[in-house]
Design a protein around this nucleic acid. Structure first.
Lengths: 203, 203
DNA sequence: AGTATAATTTTATATTTGTTAAATTAAATT
DNA sequence: AATTTAATTTAACAAATATAAAATTATACT
């Protein structure tokens, strides 16, 4: 309409709109029509550039993986601040992807599909990280490092996924910067308490 | 077919099937046809007994609320074991309801609907509990009790909701009794570390 | 300018799914 | 037994939604 024809730009518009739609509504909940409307395009164009709904989602996932900024570089050394760092990154740069993962997990359970082949690796490597930390003596020996990883994953994603629950319990939305500050501080305290050597070492 | 006509029993069959379907797939994902099939009934009967899909869900919620066993009675006194107790109850008697709440939270965010009027009260009263515990000196004063409540909610529901993630990180499904035992023990340790008075009380 | 090719829209189809209305069958009542 | 009422099924509708084919419009190339 307003602009000159440009396949590349149009495809990008579609991908951006699709990303918003999929990440917000999940695969089943996403509507091709809504994506088209949001991209300022007739929906049949989507079938022209991407084969179908499933293929569009896959394209969105690679697009979103490549286009997102690198954040692995600046991971803090101190395991005490890992959780806080994770939460900050999750709630800022990756909030919508986290929400999508939640959709994915629920939908995958209800049916049998599973996108996100890269997600598993990330989760497992996170578990490996805590195993290594335990071997370095940074995690109390009585705590299973895989459970530590799971617990911290829960604590760093739950408020983002369940913002309404967060709102009800704390009075703050998880998108609120005030919540993010306070929860970050809380996570650091929790990490400290979790990782500090137990008092009754041995009798 | 096999049995004699009995409106009450049929309604119960429908409610049971609907409960399974809604709790597993969420509201949008649930299929009336699947419910009918599962209940051994033609789907039009559902419209006869319950007005429509939305009303059926409401009926399921009250049915499920009244038919579930009481568990509030045997809550442990010691806040150290609250999390473990919550997790045990959640993963056994209430696993499917927890999953439904997850669907509800995600769907409510995507749209504007919200069932589950009773859920808010439960969450708030859980927050109040921890506030009271802190006043009794059972929670370190530097930890916001509402955040403690949110954290423990996350830890006691996340593995149930995201069983696949749990499987990837720990090698165990959250429905596996082995996982439930280990996670329960882990939660108690975490609670202990979280609630124990800080070492550097004041300088 | 004229033709080929790419970009986009119009029109149409098939399927899924929630819902309604009518018809049928069984139980209850007199 | 006849009639009324309740339980259940058959048939049909309508809206939503993913998808396909054809038509149109703009751009590139010679």
């Amino acid at each position: 309409m307003g602009e000159i024809r440009n396949a590349e730009r149009t495809q990008k518009n579609i991908l951006e709109a699709a990303k918003r739609e999929f990440f917000d509504k999940g695969f089943k909940g996403a509507r091709i029509e809504a994506i088209a409307e949001n991209a300022g395009v007739k929906k049949q164009l989507i079938y022209h550039y991407f084969k179908g709904k499933a293929e569009l989602l896959e394209a969105v996932l690679v697009y979103s993986a490549t286009s997102e900024p690198e954040w692995v570089a600046q991971v803090p050394d101190d395991p005490l601040h890992i959780a806080e760092h994770r939460f900050r990154v999750n709630s800022q740069a990756r909030a919508d992807f986290i929400k999508f993962s939640a959709w994915e997990a629920l939908e995958a359970r209800a049916e049998q599909t599973s996108w996100n082949k890269g997600g598993e690796i990330a989760l497992q490597s996170y578990a490996s990280y805590w195993k290594a930390q335990q071997e370095k003596g940074m995690v109390p020996p009585d705590l299973d490092p895989e459970f530590v990883a799971l617990a911290l994953t829960a604590l760093t994603t739950y408020p983002i996924i369940f913002s309404s629950i967060t709102q009800i319990m704390t009075g703050l939305e998880s998108s609120d910067p005030e919540f993010q500050e306070k929860w970050s501080a809380f996570l650091t305290k929790v990490s400290g308490r979790l990782l500090e050597p137990s008092e009754q070492t041995e009798a």
